[in-house]
Amino acid sequence: MSTFDELPVLRDLREPARLVDSTPHLYVRWSHGPEADENHRESRDALTGVRMSGLSANPLDVEPWWEDRPVELWVARRLYDYSHLPREKGEGVRPWVLRGRVEGRGPDNEPLVTNVEPVGWVDETVIREAAAAVVDQRGPWGPMRRDAG
């Protein structure tokens, strides 16, 4: 059994929110997991196939403009915004939280992270909670759309 199999599983929205609240520079990555990514250590631009300088991930740090709003809602949005990725990238793609160092930016301005340290898996129940939290908001808010017209 690898150490990746032993990663904790974040099972409700409060767990990643507590992590984000207490640990700076966390990211969420949607992939086949840290073990699969360990062998590649870099992402490829989906449009051109160009190798990028790290693994694409999305920051979880709360921005100052968020002020004193709930960290759970911040995390919910960060997860919900990319919850379409398993449908687009295929079976076995799921979110996991990591620490790392930003080496650059990808074509969607996402951080490209190196020196990756896996922190935990994000359970599907957290994604469902995130979707419910977003749906409960009154503004027009949804996952990023990639359709070109």
Rank of each mutant, 00 (worst) to 15 (best):
A131F: 01
T125G: 01
G120V: 04
R138M: 09
D108S: 12
P8K: 13
D147N: 05
Y80Q: 01
S83Q: 00
N39I: 09
D5F: 13
N39V: 13
A133K: 01
E15H: 06
R69K: 13
Y80F: 13
A46W: 15
R138Y: 08
R101Y: 02
L85S: 00
A131S: 01
V122Q: 07
W66S: 01
L7C: 04
T23D: 08
L60M: 04
W141V: 08
R138N: 09
D68Q: 13
S22G: 15
V113K: 02
V71Y: 14
P8S: 08
V126P: 08
P59D: 00
E38I: 11
G139S: 08
E35F: 08
G54N: 04
N39G: 12
M144N: 14
G92I: 03
N115I: 00
L98S: 14
D136R: 12
V134H: 02
P95M: 10
L85A: 04
V134I: 14
A130Q: 01
D61Y: 08
I127C: 09
P95D: 11
P95C: 10
D147I: 08
P118C: 06
R99F: 01
L79N: 04
R29M: 04
D45K: 13
R14E: 05
R138F: 11
I127Y: 08
R44M: 07
V102Y: 01
A76H: 07
L98P: 12
V71F: 14
R146H: 15
L47C: 04
G92E: 06
S56V: 03
V75H: 10
Y80W: 06
P59N: 02
E110H: 02
E15S: 13
Y27Q: 03
G33I: 09
D12G: 05
V122E: 01
A57P: 14
G90R: 02
S31V: 02
P8M: 05
A132I: 00
V119I: 09
E129P: 00
E72T: 15
Q137E: 05
G104P: 10
A133Y: 08
V50K: 15
L73A: 10
W66T: 00
P34F: 00
A131M: 02
S56F: 11
H32Q: 06
E6G: 12
E42N: 05
R77W: 15
D123T: 08
T23F: 10
P8F: 02
E67C: 11
N39K: 11
A17H: 11
R99G: 12
V62N: 13
D21A: 12
V135I: 11
R78A: 13
R69N: 08
W30E: 05
V71N: 12
R87V: 09
Y82P: 00
P24G: 06
R138L: 13
T23H: 12
H25Y: 00
R145E: 15
R145T: 12
R94W: 02
E6Y: 06
R14G: 09
S2F: 10
D61L: 07
V119S: 00
V93K: 08
G92H: 01
T48Y: 14
V119E: 02
A133W: 07
R145L: 15
V102T: 10
F4A: 15
D81T: 00
D61P: 03
L13H: 05
A132F: 01
N39W: 15
K89A: 05
P24T: 03
D123H: 15
S56P: 13
H84D: 10
S43M: 10
V122I: 12
A17N: 04
L10Q: 11
P24F: 07
L85D: 01
Y82F: 03
R94K: 07
E35K: 02
A46N: 05
S31H: 03
L19M: 14
